[in-house]
Design a protein around this nucleic acid. Sequence first.
DNA 1: TCTGGGGTCCTAGGACCC
DNA 2: TCTGGGGTCCTAGGACCC
Length: 414
Amino acid sequence: MEARPTVLHADLDAFYASVEQLLDPRLRGRPVAVGGGVVLAASYEAKRVGVSSAMAGWRAKELCPDLVFVKGHFSEYQRLSKQVMSILGDYTPAVEQVSIDEAFLDIAGSRRLFGEPDEIATAIRERVQGEAGLPISIGAASTKHLAKIASQVAKPDGLVVVPPDREREFLDPLPVRLVWGVGPATQARLEARGVTTIGELAKESPERLAALLGGGAATKLRGLANNDDWRRVRSRGRARSVGAQSALGRTTPTPELLAEVLGHLADRVATRLRAKGRAGRTVTVRVRFTGMRSITRSITVRDPVSATLTLREISEALATQALADHPRERTITLLAISVSNVTELPESQLELPAPGGDPNRAGSPTAVARLEVDRSMDAVRTRFGRAAVGYAAVALSERGAVPDEFRELAERDV
DNA sequence: TCTGGGGTCCTAGGACCC
DNA sequence: TCTGGGGTCCTAGGACCC
């Protein structure tokens, strides 16, 4: 273990909201929420009175009557994120971007050039503020986990360096919720046993934790609480699954509705897969009922799927089955498709026509024809934009959903 | 009026194979 | 004839993260 903090975690503060305040000076110092029906991001002025992301718009307004809603400048988020990541890359090649607004840096090899961790972190913060106009918090420590906790403690607009000889002292009094992997459910279970701080978690017996959380989770959590974190900073690989979902409000699931919504989702997912020359063998459909209860149905097929129509047919069959299994549920609130078991799209799907009309068989005339239609459509869209062409049933009724640009911000490379 | 949309990983049981 | 033990894959659900 390195005897100095060599991992930085850099985290832009209230990113989307900060960008809006940067773009429109009138918003500075005021509580701002990006979004409308639902809060996608909140400024610190809004967070202070309890507004948080994913909160229903009406609820946020209730908590904060002065709240200003803005629609969001999604291309600016993308641009500024790239600019910030590029600044980070000036200090080390080992940058692991976690999301649009967050990254780990391994600065073990940067000391000669740029100085001690606190000097590097300070320089980064000044440059991000000066060049991009955005506040960024940084945590510096010997491991990723600890660096991440340090940046959370540093927020907003701060820097926290944890010296290696004071890690326990730093960690022990903090709430368990700061441990990576402890969400509301785990927190509640731990607190029911009187475990509220990381120090208490670290002292828990392995047996008691395993009984409470299951063996795997217990081992992982004890490790993190004891600061045994071996994870390296490494650039992020490709996504292992691709999905899309649509919240529907309260809706009656007619066959027509399934066809329309799943058609749209299949189109999004399959288009992304084809764009990267990939396909997936496992298709999972999720149906959510009122009260956030949700179920999934999945199937793993022999030949990887990337044709829109094939994905749509499989999804409709799975959704229909899921609904048939729950005949008493009359209302659904969300439909989702996910494709996993992702591999390269085999060339054989185009080159080796097989006999028979089974669209699920790679190389069958039907399968080849479907992919050809898809490729033509992909090409038209590349030239004229997404709305230029689509399946008839997919002519998406705008359900007041989140704009596509926002979806794209969260997409990972397939 | 219960909150969007993109993901990852883990668990547990069953099927199937050797 | 019943028994073992290990490994892999698949499905469903759950928790978590940004």
